[in-house]
Design a protein around this nucleic acid. Structure first.
Length: 552
RNA sequence: GCCCCGGUAGCUCAGCGGAUUAGAGCAAUGGGCUUCUAUCCCACAGGUCGGGGGUUCGAUUCCCUCCCGGGGUACCA
């Protein structure tokens, strides 16, 4: 459509425009454009006159059935049924065909509790990766994680203290299914001690160094190393179990910090003087020159901070994949931090820096305002969210099926625009009424049951088929699928898919209410529409990582 | 202090340069099942789009400023 308008404007006025087109309310037409207003100033003409000229030309376009000019110069276009049908059957454009795209998300830290935020990035990241893959990109899913660093020092310090010494056998004897919580509790102890007790702080710093040393020496033998590797492996097992439970696509690669710490350290050291500077015994990047914060990349102990590790991560990604685009999604609290890191990298490796896109998401809160204290360690965990959804399902009736529970959680977390905080309401998320995952699942199951019951043979709709009003409304909505997916992909904004699918399901449910399928004169035609609808709904849900059940 | 993100109906959120009624859902009120799954649908109600300026033919949308909430601001991640 916009191509056609562009062509006409070029012919009429010899101007290149990117016309903004939108989908108006159905009563006005199928497509609307305000291109006449865009041009009015440039041409020094009345927008209404410009609109009339364009409208006249547009009238002759093959896919247009009616054109009208409204208000100050809006052009409302009604499309032919044939073009709507064709559009409804068309797949989204492969806008990333031939591109190699890295998507980094989830990023849980071994030795630390898995909080609700990890669940959020895991699910949103999974959808983002599905979107870029669906758009034709060679997609590589990466998972970064801190298996070295201060938090590990804190946990390991408390572990040794709790065990009353370096006792590998004692750690291995701990019950495996509660080991995650056990480590979480140790992290909290270590963290509190670090803040309150200078003696402990010094000890923790030593433990931290010890952990780095262990990696450099490739030490798997010492008792300390045995404890470390056991807990690290168990952490990763635990994460993998969660991913399986969540039914997210498998990661292509885990990139623990220990792997990228040294490359990062070396890169930073190699650029002391031209990019980084030494200050108070540390190595910093003076972000202030660029209106950003100044940050420490190597601390005075000579250890890489998270900054240097992120440098190492970026360079490793670049060297190993030579990507066209690298997407990273983390919490908003890292937004300005990441800007500094990328700016620093840009100074000596501009290409990967320019091709990196950092997305951020807000905090997940449980509605009802449960008080959380990170100090006590009663943070909202990933499992709390899942359990809250299950519990809410129990209340409203039969035991919640796992795939409905997942649909509820995934949809609730993805339906909001990225950036703001999410208030998770378990009851609302699991309800089959309202804008929820289960509503869409039910909408799918309901439509599928029509197809099961009909004995008429079902075929693709002919484009020359004349549509009745209710049918046309449904087709018109189905025709929007591709542009919704393209928009979500281009903007890396998965919530657009949710908004669209919900509108689609509502449109269908209205159609279902007013139009009989089985036994109607138009059964064959309507069956084709229902088939197309269930296909689109299922494809959309699949992009969200949500199952489309046959029955509910 | 400076910087980033947010503030749209009672609640949770879409919309982020356009008109004709600023849209949904939940909650509230009133309807619709002998009929393809009523886990659904319909109706009605609910808004100085945080305040104030500005740009524009036109601002919830762009710019400035202030207020409120969250986050960041050198050796945590």
């Amino acid at each position: 459509m916009d191509e056609e308008i562009k062509k006409i404007v070029k012919e009429l006025f010899d101007i290149d425009v990117a016309p903004s087109v939108s989908i108006p309310e159905e009563q006005f037409g199928d497509v609307a454009t305000n291109v006449a207003m865009q041009l009015a100033k440039q041409l020094g003409q009345n927008p209404r006159d410009i609109a009339d000229q364009i409208a006249t030309k547009l009238q002759n376009a093959p896919f247009v059935s009616e054109v009208s000019v409204a208000g100050p110069g809006f052009i409302n276009i009604k499309l032919t049924d044939a073009s709507l049908i064709e559009q409804a059957y068309s797949a989204p454009k492969k806008i990333l065909e031939g591109k190699k795209v890295l998507v980094e998300y989830s990023d849980p830290n071994p030795f630390k509790p898995l909080h609700a935020g990890h669940l959020y990035t895991t699910l949103v990241g999974d959808v983002l990766a599905r979107l870029v893959q669906n758009a034709g990109a060679e997609t590589i899913r990466l998972n970064f994680g801190g298996d070295v660093g201060m938090h590990v020092g804190k946990t390991m310090w408390a572990v040794v203290k709790t065990l009353g010494g370096e006792d590998a056998a004692a750690v291995q004897a701990l019950p495996v299914d509660t080991l995650g919580e056990w480590m979480g509790a140790r992290y909290v102890e270590g963290n509190n001690a670090y803040e309150d007790d200078e003696q402990a702080q010094a000890e923790i710093r030593e433990v931290n160094k010890h952990v780095y040393q262990l990696h450099n020496d490739n030490d798997h033998e010492s008792t300390f190393a045995q404890i470390y590797w056991y807990l690290r492996d168990q952490s990763y097992e635990f994460f993998k179990k969660l991913y399986t439970e969540l039914q997210v696509v498998e990661f292509d690669r885990f990139m623990p910090e220990s792997e990228v710490a040294n490359p990062g350290l070396e890169a930073v050291k190699a650029h002391i003087g031209d990019v980084f500077t030494e200050s108070e015994g540390a190595v910093i990047f003076e972000g202030e020159q660029y209106g950003l914060h100044t940050r420490v990349f190597i601390n005075k102990e000579g250890l890489p901070t998270y900054e240097a590790k992120d440098v190492g991560l970026s360079l490793t990604k670049w060297n190993d994949y030579h990507f066209d685009e690298s997407i990273i999604i983390t919490a908003t609290e890292q937004a300005q931090y990441m800007e500094v890191v990328i700016k620093a990298i840009e100074q000596f490796a501009p290409e990967p820096a320019h091709k990196t896109r950092h997305l951020t998401h807000g905090v997940v809160k449980l509605s009802g305002g449960v008080k959380m204290s990170s100090r006590k360690g009663n943070i909202l965990s990933a499992f709390d969210i899942l359990q809250a959804a299950r519990d809410a399902g129990e209340i409203s009736g039969q035991a919640t099926q796992e795939n409905v529970m997942l649909a509820a959680v995934k949809y609730a977390l993805v339906k909001n625009r990225l950036g703001g905080d999410v208030v998770y309401d378990p009851k609302e998320s699991i309800a089959t009424e309202g804008n929820s995952g289960p509503y869409l699942q039910y909408a799918h199951a309901r439509a599928r049951s029509i197809l099961r019951k009909s004995e008429t043979r079902n075929s693709k709709l002919e484009t020359n088929q004349k549509l009745e009003h209710g049918e046309r409304t449904l087709v018109r909505k189905m025709a929007e699928y591709s542009s919704a997916v393209e928009l979500a992909t281009r903007e890396l904004a998965p919530h657009h898919i949710c908004t669209y699918l919900y509108e689609l399901a509502q449109t269908f449910n209205r159609f279902y209410e007013n139009n009989k399928v089985i036994g109607d004169d138009r059964e064959a035609i309507r069956l084709s529409l229902v088939t197309l609808y269930t296909d689109i709904l299922k494809k959309g849900l699949t992009l969200l990582g949500i199952t489309a059940p046959e029955k509910m």
